[in-house]
């Protein structure tokens, strides 16, 4: 990403001159960020703050128009003792972990394959990306049909292969519902992983491979000793982004299983939605949100640290 061509002392001198010239005008600079800044303060920072505030209150649909009382950490205690919360946390971890593992592995395989030059490559790469662009509501509906107990294509296929003896009702069975939603989400995630990894692969220096070939390193050795180490920054960033994007998946769950049966496919964002908009206990929903935010900030800090490390290189 080395766009600047001038040497660092030249840059320092120009920066000094610019600084002096622009100091007078610098107040005007803030006008450029004013509209967006105000918008983000009003609709992003304020809501996050408000969300935090009501976790210490007892806001429900019943008292929304009245004064709410301060309850301290009561909501956090309630949530942490809640069995469904613990189950959704567990489901969220399973959901995220399995999705990331499979979409990354399959996406990487696709990326390596599409990194070769062959006719029709760009068309097919673009077609695969369509899976990622489709709204999740539609993908959810589509997989709901494919996983249907009666006449669903997945049962047909497994029966034909002899993998099962009788149709399985995937979405209304508490052992399979979560895994069905995971399958749908893996399908959505593969193109994203593929495109990011492909961009990374295409930026690798070809000479290194030439040199390795001369030294007699085979394809597999090249992959483990050249491709993987060189791709490390891309891979780490992708995994962290993947964790964050997967952790917040909501639509797929709502459409395919509604979190059921008996919460067997409830993940944290869905549980928050349920508490807030089925039970109308806004404070408890907000408490789950805040806990999720805490978890995501941890992951995001790792991400920021990685980005900074990369930019300094």
């Amino acid at each position: 990403m080395n766009v600047e061509t001038d040497t660092s002392w030249q840059r320092n001198v120009t920066m000094e001159i610019r600084k002096k010239a622009k100091r007078k005008k610098s107040l005007g600079n803030y006008l450029f960020i004013l509209p967006g800044g105000v918008f983000l303060l009003l609709f992003l920072v304020f809501p996050i703050g408000y969300n935090l505030k009501i976790t210490f209150e007892d806001l429900t649909a019943l008292n929304i128009l009245k004064e709410q009382s301060f309850v301290g950490l009561e909501n956090y205690v309630t949530v942490l003792k809640d069995k469904i919360f613990l189950l959704s946390l567990k489901n969220s971890v399973i959901f995220t972990g399995l999705c990331i593992f499979f979409q990354f592995t399959i996406g990487f395989a696709f990326a390596l394959f599409f990194n070769k030059k062959f006719p029709g490559r760009n068309v097919m790469r673009a077609l695969i990306l369509i899976a990622w662009m489709i709204p999740m509501v539609i993908t959810g509906t589509l997989f709901k049909w494919m996983f249907a107990g009666d006449h669903g294509i997945i049962n047909h296929l497994l029966l034909w292969l002899g993998a099962i003896d009788q149709p399985i009702h995937w979405l209304i069975n508490d052992h399979t519902s979560l895994y069905s939603t995971i399958t749908a989400n893996i399908w959505i995630g593969i193109p994203f992983n593929m495109i990011i990894l492909l961009a990374g692969l295409q930026s690798l220096p070809e000479e290194t491979y030439e040199a390795a070939k001369v030294d007699g390193a085979g394809k597999i050795r090249q992959f483990f000793f050249i491709t993987l180490p060189l791709m490390k920054p891309t891979i780490l960033t992708l995994l962290i982004l993947g964790i964050i994007y997967t952790f917040k998946v909501f639509d797929i769950i709502l459409i395919m299983t509604g979190g059921g049966p008996v919460n067997s496919s409830t993940v944290l964002p869905f549980y928050s939605y349920e508490l807030a908009f089925t039970n109308y206990n806004f404070s408890l929903g907000a408490t789950i949100n805040t806990i999720m935010l805490g978890l995501l900030v941890l992951v995001a800090l790792v991400y920021l640290w990685l980005v900074r490390k990369e930019e300094n290189v």
């Binding site: 609709f43 809501p47 909501f250």
Partner: peptide, 28 residues
């Protein structure tokens, strides 16, 4: 343009672009 706290702003944007939408939907 020259702005104070540019690094912080970028960091802030990187973090908030990852917010789950339910986190905003409830206060909204």
């Amino acid at each position: 343009l020259e702005l104070r706290g540019k690094g912080w702003m970028i960091g802030f944007l990187l973090v908030v672009q990852m917010l789950p939408n339910i986190m905003l939907a409830l206060p909204f």
